[in-house]
């Protein structure tokens, strides 16, 4: 897997974790009651890690990541059965073949999101 794609996946995973803690009341409750987590402290810690990982992105990847995050929310999405799961448009067969290896940083021609294939 391309190192920049790996960082992007980690950032997106952390953002999902943050979203659950900040916006999903039931998730927040489980973490607080079952695992005795302080959600506010956890969110702060997650934000710091996200910022650290964003600092590891190359300028070109970071520029697209910031633009897509700002305009479309999720910047990294899977490709499943040849479909971009950001915009649900088919990606060209030639690109699908390249994306499958996850060894380069690719984006969807239609929505611009970074794409990858789950093994």
């Amino acid at each position: 897997m391309h190192p920049q794609l790996e960082i992007l996946l980690q950032i997106q995973d952390l953002k999902a974790q943050r979203r659950d803690l900040a916006e999903v009341e039931s998730e927040r409750k489980v973490e607080e009651e079952e695992f005795q987590i302080d959600p506010e402290q956890a969110i702060q810690s997650i934000d710091e890690k996200i910022a650290e990982l964003e600092g590891e992105l190359t300028p070109s990847v970071r520029s697209r990541y910031e633009r897509i995050s700002r305009d479309r929310g999720r910047a990294v999405v899977p490709v499943i059965n040849g479909i971009c799961y950001g915009c649900f448009v088919s990606i060209p067969t030639s690109l699908a073949s390249d994306v499958r290896r996850n060894d380069e940083v690719h984006h969807c021609d239609h929505c611009g999101r970074f794409i990858y294939v789950v093994s």
């Binding site: 980690q10 999902a16 987590i37 402290q41 956890a42 093994s119």
Partner: peptide, 27 residues
Amino acid sequence: KMLRRRENLGSTGIGRGIAIPHCRSLV
């Protein structure tokens, strides 16, 4: 990495000898 980071926020060991490591991930 994701599970380790979750553990760093607080252990998922809920007592009675049981732990529930958990996370969301795009992989």
